[in-house]
Each structure stands twice: as C-alpha cells, then as structure tokens.
C-alpha cells in the first residue's frame, strides 16, 4: 500500500494545479461565445464579439504595432544574445566580465516600473542632445524591449552553447576554415534550436510587455497590452474575452509544437544513447573474445 501513496498524491497535486491554472482561462473562453453584453450572464452562443473585434480599428492598429515591435525586437535580441552567449562561454575571462554578467542578468529580475522609468528618463535626456531619441515611437519601444529581452535570449542560447563539442570547431579550423565559416557552417546549425527558442521567448515577452512600454510609448504608439489594459480598467467587456481567446488559441498551438519538438529530441537522444550502449557492448564482447583467443594461444 505504501508504494501507491506517492502516486495518489501526485495525481491530486496535478489535478489541483491544472484546475487552478486553467479554470480562469477556461471561463474566459466560454464567455467569449456568449451573446449577452454582460460578461458573466450566459444567454446564448454567438460569434458576435469576434465579428466586432475584426471591425475595431483601434485593436487592429495595436496588433499591427505590437507585431512589428515583437519581430524587430526578437531578431535583434537573438543577435545580441548569441554574441553575449558566445563571449560568456568561449572567451570567458575578460576585463569587466562580472559587470557584463550583472548587466545581462539584472533586467530579468528588476521590477518593471524601475526599468521603465529608467529607460524613459534616458530617452528624455538623450532627446535633449540628439532629437532622434525624443520621438518616443516604435524605435524607442524596440530599444527598450531589446534591452530586457537580450537578457533572456543570452540565458537560453548560452545553455546550448555549453553543450557544443569544441573539438569539431577546432577540427574545422585545422582544416583551414575561417572563423566566419566555422560560425555559419558548424556553430549556427548546432545552436539553431536554442536560437528558435530564444526568438519565440523574446517574441512573447515583447508582445506581452505592458509596464515598460507604457513608460516609453508616446501618444501615437499604443501597443496591444496597453489597449487591453486601458479597456479592462474601464470594466469587463466581451470583446476582450474574444481577443483573449484568440491569444490563448495561438499560444496553445505554439506550445503544442514546442512539446512535439521536445519529445522528438528526447526520443532521438534516447535512441542515440541506446545505440552507443549497443556499440559499447559489442566492443566489450570483442575484447573478451580477443582475450580468450589470446589466452588459448598462450
């Protein structure tokens, strides 16, 4: 009986966790198909709020701005993250290294209100000298997002970098490949999964950021989270339910693919390990056989 106790406890914990995590989201989705304007009173099923969403120009514009910033941010953050990860794993000791590590980790933990205020004051100050910075539009938001996303992309890419086998690079170098060739032919394909993961992570974070963006953004650049926030502050609205359902649907599809690639990778690794084990077994047998023959000869 003792053996089953942990399994039962595990099942209860898992069920409670899933209820806690998905009950609010589930309710949100159900009521997005409600006909009534009252968010919590069910009348009949309807797709009316999805129709309203498509015709809401403010929302469409905000989605456009958010997507643009998210794509720009993710591309830049992945480049900076790759450089930083390379430096941290391969170059390691250099002047100002610990300061560098601090810069690359601090944006992950600092409260967003501080980072947001700091960046805004920077843009205002720089704007006095270089007018380019005083226009607080897409470019300013892009810079702010890259700053905090780079910290995350660095962590993700660095952990993959560490798994790389440096002897392959050295072999390529010995065979006459230049550093750029080595990077594009050997390193980049090997770290590609991490690059994709880092891209997706900074994409979602850029799409989701509210506080830092609110500090930076001027009146003409309202991103999607800012729009949702101001509308939620005014009260509940079924249109937001419909929008939330679409966001959840997109995220679930992406999560599904992430899960798929994760399981595939693990299966491949398990197969490789089995193969290696088999090879070792054969080798061992050969050695034993060899010894036996040697002994019988002697």
């Amino acid at each position: 009986m003792r053996v089953n106790k942990p399994a039962a406890a595990r099942l209860v914990i898992i069920i409670l966790t899933l209820v806690f995590l998905y009950l609010p989201i589930g309710t949100l989705i159900v009521y997005s198909f409600n006909e009534s304007k009252m968010v919590t009173v069910w009348t009949e099923a309807s797709l009316k709020w999805y129709g309203a969403l498509v015709h809401d120009k403010a929302i469409i514009d905000a989605v456009g701005i958010s997507l643009l910033i998210a794509v720009l941010t993710s591309c830049t953050a992945v480049v900076i993250g790759t450089l930083a990860a390379f430096v941290l794993v391969r170059v390691r000791s250099f002047k100002g290294e610990s300061a560098f590590v601090l810069f690359m980790t601090a944006p992950m933990v600092l409260p967003e209100v501080i980072t947001g205020l700091a960046l805004l004051l920077l843009f205002v100050t720089l704007g006095n000298v270089i007018p380019f910075f005083s226009d607080r539009g897409v470019i300013a938001i892009w810079i702010a997002h890259v700053t905090f996303c780079s910290a995350y992309t660095t962590v993700v890419i660095r952990s993959r970098f560490r798994e790389l086998d440096i002897s392959i690079e050295e072999a390529a170098m010995d065979l006459g490949a230049g550093p750029i060739k080595v990077f594009f032919a050997i390193i980049l394909p090997a770290i590609m999964p991490a690059e994709v993961a880092a891209f997706l992570l900074s994409f979602t974070m850029s799409m989701d950021d509210l506080v830092i963006t609110s500090f930076i953004a001027g009146p003409d650049s309202t991103t999607l989270p800012m729009l949702i926030f101001s509308s939620v502050r005014r009260g509940l609205s079924p249109e937001i339910n419909a929008l939330a359902t679409i966001i959840v649907a997109i995220v679930s599809v992406c999560t599904f693919f992430a899960w798929l690639s994760m399981t595939r990778k693990q299966k491949r690794m398990a197969a490789d390990r089995a193969k290696a084990a088999r090879a070792m077994l054969i080798e061992e047998k050969a050695v034993i056989e060899h010894r036996r023959l040697y002994k019988s000869k002697a």
């Binding site: 966790t17 995590l21 609010p24 949100l28 009173v41 989701d208 939620v232 679930s252 999560t255």
Partner: peptide, 29 residues
C-alpha cells in the same frame, strides 16, 4: 513533458489577459 508544457503555457499568454480572467471569476456574480 506534457505537464511541464501545461504549467508553463499560461505564462506565455498575456499577463493582462490572465488578470482579466481572474476579474471575471472573482466578481460578485
């Protein structure tokens, strides 16, 4: 793997949306 994804997935959706979801279920009605 499945559980791991399920636990992380909500954090990939928007923060404001998650808070909004709690507002709907914690309302008086």
């Amino acid at each position: 793997n499945v559980l791991f994804m399920l636990v992380i997935m909500p954090s990939w959706t928007s923060l404001v949306v998650r808070i909004y979801a709690w507002m709907t279920i914690m309302k008086k009605d």
